[in-house]
Structure formats: C-alpha cells, structure tokens
C-alpha cells in the first residue's frame, strides 16, 4: 500500500522535450514508473526514446490512459500547463518547475479547487513523489529509497528528503510513500493533506515530517497529529538559527515578525507527542527507534 501513486499510475511529462523533462522522464521510466507519454504542441507525433509525444494532455490521456502528469515546463507556462492537465483528465499533477510567480500559484490552486476538486496538485517547486519500488514521479534519486514501508515521509525540502531516505535505507527501514510538498508560498499539497492520507493508509505505520521555517503549515500538521493521527511521528525542522526577514532559498522559507520560527513549530510538534530532532541524522535515529517499537 501507499498513497496517491503506485505501480498502476500512468504518467505523462509536460515539457518532455526540454532537457530536464527528458532527463527525468527517462530516469523515472528506468526506475519502473509507467511513463506513457509526454506533450509538446510543436513536436506532436515524435517520440523521446520511444516515449510518444502528443500535442495536448487531452490527446495523451485519450491515447494512453494517463492518470498523472509531471510538469517540467518553464515557469511562465506553468499556470496554463496545470489547467491543461486538469482539463485533460489526469487526477494527479506534480509541478517540479521552480520560480513560478506567487500570483499564478494562488490563481491555479484555487481554480483547481473550485473546478476540479478531485485533482491533487503537488508543488510547484517540489521534488515530486515516490512510492519506492513502484512509481517515482519527479527528481528524487529513487535508488536511495527502500520499498515496503512502514514509514511515510512528507517534506518541504528536497535534499533533506533525500538525506532522510538514505539514512532510513542505511538502517534497513523501508518507505511506503515519500511526498515532497516543496517550499513555495502556495503549495498544492500541504502537510495536513499528506498526514491525512498516511492516516488512512494501513501500510504506513509511522510518519516522518521534515519542515522548515516560514508559514504555519507545520503547526497545522501538529494539530492534526494531536487530534487524529494514531501513528508515531518523528520530525525535523530546518532553520532554527535563520534570521528574521531573510528568504532562505525557498520563497516560503522566511520568518516574518514572530511567525514562522522553527522554535514555534518544534514546540507545536512536541506538544502533539512528536519526537522532534535537532538535526537530520538524529531524526533518522528517532524514526528507527519508533519503528523498532512498533
């Protein structure tokens, strides 16, 4: 079991003819993901190493039965690519592209919510999602993850996610699904969404949460853990020592006034019974302890 994607997920890549789109579509395919097509209106009818290229998502869905789209188009085209994917009929959209304007994100997130409530959006500016051994959509190095569970991972940070997957693998611990929600101001999927899905997934028996400064999504996640989630959670929040008012790489990673500090997030998580680590290595150790006592 897993959340949102598995071996039956059929993926197309919007922007498959660009260098990043091509590279990761082929990598994801080599991993075992069902990569069924790509789109580029100017190159319809051609293929990328045997992967057919269609003019539109609608056509790709009709021809291949695609259920998910992974978006690599440049930032100016992301809003229309997301809407095209939803109109075309896929139900899962992962936007890897970074640098999408916040006004665009706010608009297409709400438009999807109103007109396509069944579609799940992940990102923008996220590493993607991986159900190890079954389906890898995005830029995660799948080789470092161990299939099978019992841990579900949700994270705002790319490299820290890889680090977590790697350290769990070193300890012989498997992962059901690892979701990278990304660090942008309007993420399509939040901690709460992933925690709810892990809550409902019987194969996921423990959860690892990797957050960072800025916003209040970790606090909301903590409230959900406290009220509902009956699975052990280990967490790490990056940016304990980040100064206020400075964007730390991610557009969303900024402390404004007293809001968004790592301390506040760590306290909220601890209050919800979460084991909170002060560095990524310790988080993996805590996770291993929790898994051993399951």
């Amino acid at each position: 079991m897993s959340i949102w994607v598995d071996r039956n997920t059929r993926v197309i890549y919007q922007g498959i003819t660009g260098s990043a789109g091509r590279f990761y579509a082929l990598r994801n395919q080599a991993y075992g993901t069902q990569v069924v097509g790509g789109t580029n209106p100017k190159k319809a009818g051609t293929d990328v190493e045997g992967i057919p290229v269609f003019a539109t998502v609608k056509e790709a869905v009709a021809q291949t039965g695609a259920t998910a789209s992974c978006i690599f188009v440049p930032a100016p085209g992301v809003e229309s690519a997301v809407m095209e994917a939803a109109e075309g009929g896929v139900t899962f959209i992962a936007v890897i592209t970074e640098g999408v304007p916040a006004q665009d994100e706010a608009r297409f997130y709400n438009r999807l919510k109103q007109d396509y409530p069944r579609v799940r959006l992940l990102g923008p500016n996220c590493p993607g999602i991986i159900t190890p051994g079954e389906c890898n959509i995005g830029i995660t190095a799948g080789e470092i993850a161990t299939p099978g569970g019992p841990v579900g991972i949700v994270s705002r940070s790319g490299t820290l996610t890889y680090q977590a997957l790697y350290e769990l693998t070193q300890k012989g611990i498997g992962v059901t699904t690892c979701v990278g929600i990304g660090g942008d101001p309007v993420p399509g999927t939040t901690f709460i969404d992933a925690l709810q899905a892990f809550h409902a997934d019987s194969a996921t028996r423990a959860v690892m949460l990797i957050g960072e400064i800025g916003g209040s999504e970790e606090e909301k996640g903590a409230a959900f853990i406290k009220s509902t989630l009956r699975k052990p959670v280990a967490a790490y929040i990056a940016g304990v020592t980040a100064p206020a008012g400075k964007k730390m790489g991610h557009a969303g990673a900024i402390i404004s006034g007293s809001r968004g500090t790592a301390q506040a997030k760590m306290e909220a998580l601890e209050d919800a019974g979460v084991r909170v680590a002060i560095n990524p290595t310790q988080a993996a150790e805590m996770m291993a302890e929790l898994v051993r006592s399951l």
């Binding site: 994270s155 705002r156 940070s157 790319g158 490299t159 820290l160 996610t161 680090q163 660090g183 990797i210 960072e212 400064i213 790490y236 990056a238 940016g239 304990v240 020592t241 980040a242 730390m248 790489g249 991610h250 990673a253 002060i278 560095n279 990524p280």
Partner: peptide, 21 residues
Amino acid sequence: ANGAGLAMSTLDVVNQAGGQP
C-alpha cells in the same frame, strides 16, 4: 551546501557546535 533545506540545516548544526555562520 546543496539545497535550501540542507543549507539551512547546515547553519543549524554549525550553531549547535558553538560556531557562527
């Protein structure tokens, strides 16, 4: 460091070790 999260995390561990980034 590579990645915003890891870079932030690096600032944290340097602080934890008693240094100033």
